[in-house]
Amino acid sequence: MGQVKITERELNRATLGRQLLLERAPVGVAEGVRRVVAVQAQHGGSAYLALWNRLVGFDPAEADGVFARREVVKATLMRITLHAVHAEDYRVFREAMQPTLYAARLGSRTGLPPAEVRELVPGLLEFAAEPRSGAEIRRWLEERVGEAAREGAWWGLRGYAPLHHHPTGGPWSFGERPSYVAAGGGPVAGGKEGVPGALERLVLRCLAAFGPASVADVAQFAMVRRAPVRRVLRELADGAVERLEGPGGVELFDVPGAVRPDGDAPAPPRLLGMWDSVLLAYADRSRVIPAEYRRVVIRANGDVLPTLLVDGRVAGVWRPVEGGIEAAAFHELPAAVWEALAEEARSLHALLAARDPWLYRRYAHWWAKLPAGRARLLPG
């Protein structure tokens, strides 16, 4: 029997379904984060917008609470960027990322030999048993490596050491001046090689929340090398994962029994925040972003703009303005779609008005550099 074939549209619906974007889920924040595996948290407000898009009756105060209690934690993880993950997932994700973080963060930029930086980790974690500001940690480091090496050492350690971001207050729990606290459990073992079994567990969680996916997609999701991902998937293909044939004959992998909605399943419009995970979790992003729009919404410097999702795919961008949300579509949209976007915008405007009405203001310069679109004010 040949492999099951899956179309690009079916891939789109699988992604949206597992990311709770076909239908908001009636679950709490901690369980919602667990289901989608990881929420991009590079911008504090974006994590809240991701949850608003995915959960029925999302209450930002509940998100404040799970962050304060560390039921959901924010840390440097996949793609060497900040993610919010369920506390029970953190350790294995961090163990799986060990080789990537070692290579990326303990290299020449620290100005110190990698072994010397690693030797600082146990002491740093002891110092950060209670929340510490970046300034406090710099002073601690200066006492040990000197002023000249302090900044390089901290650059490496704040990505490599198992540290959580501690809530600092403000509209989105985490402000622009982070505070750090030890993750617990001590340093991560494994050095350059990582912890046995950790990558396998991360791969399975990736497939459950973002599959079906190719070797390249899984490697992109975490930013790990393709060779170990390929090895893991080949070993798991004996029963823990199944193989499918994707568009163009690409080999895809998925967890057995995972729901794959029909390609005709309705996908309601959504207003995604900056850096939403569905826009970044794949090497081949065409399942969500039309090729002609990829460079428009994912800028050369890494900024990923807030987007309109229409029929499951990027169709424009949005920004908060006085009185509501301004939405600019890249192509004509039916009246019914505009009505659905307006309903979403009223809910989003209420969320922002109570927290941060000018979310993403610092990125406003991108608006003037976008191609001409069909802009509308969606009143709050």
Rank of each mutant, 00 (worst) to 15 (best):
E130D: 13
V72A: 11
L305T: 11
T168S: 14
F330K: 12
W275P: 02
V296G: 00
L16H: 05
A129W: 06
A182L: 13
R355Y: 11
D64S: 09
E176P: 00
H43V: 12
G111F: 01
L309P: 01
G273C: 09
L341F: 13
A345C: 07
L377V: 14
P171C: 12
V92T: 15
G263W: 09
V85S: 01
E119N: 06
R294V: 15
L271I: 07
E23V: 08
R35K: 11
F330H: 06
L16Q: 10
R158D: 03
L55A: 12
E71S: 09
L280W: 02
H83R: 03
A198I: 04
P247H: 02
E151C: 00
D264P: 00
D303R: 08
R144K: 14
N12E: 11
P269G: 08
Q19C: 08
V39L: 11
Y363Q: 14
R285I: 02
P256Q: 06
G107S: 15
A222I: 01
R313W: 05
R177Y: 01
A135K: 14
P269L: 11
G323C: 13
P256V: 10
G156Q: 05
R346N: 00
T168H: 07
R287L: 13
G28M: 05
R285G: 04
N12A: 09
V218D: 07
P113Y: 00
Y102R: 12
L280V: 05
L106R: 07
G57H: 05
E339Y: 01
G324I: 07
F58I: 07
D264N: 15
K5Q: 15
L22Y: 04
V241R: 06
A161E: 01
Q98S: 04
G197S: 05
S286K: 12
G316N: 06
T168Q: 08
R374Y: 07
P131Y: 11
W52C: 06
A153T: 11
V117L: 12
A372M: 07
E116K: 13
G373S: 15
E322H: 15
S133H: 08
G28A: 10
W366H: 08
D238S: 05
R144C: 02
A375Y: 03
L21N: 08
A237W: 13
G312A: 02
Q220R: 15
R226M: 06
R260V: 13
V85L: 10
P162E: 03
L378A: 07
V29F: 09
D356M: 10
L101W: 07
A353Q: 14
A291P: 05
L112S: 10
R225W: 13
P290V: 04
A327E: 06
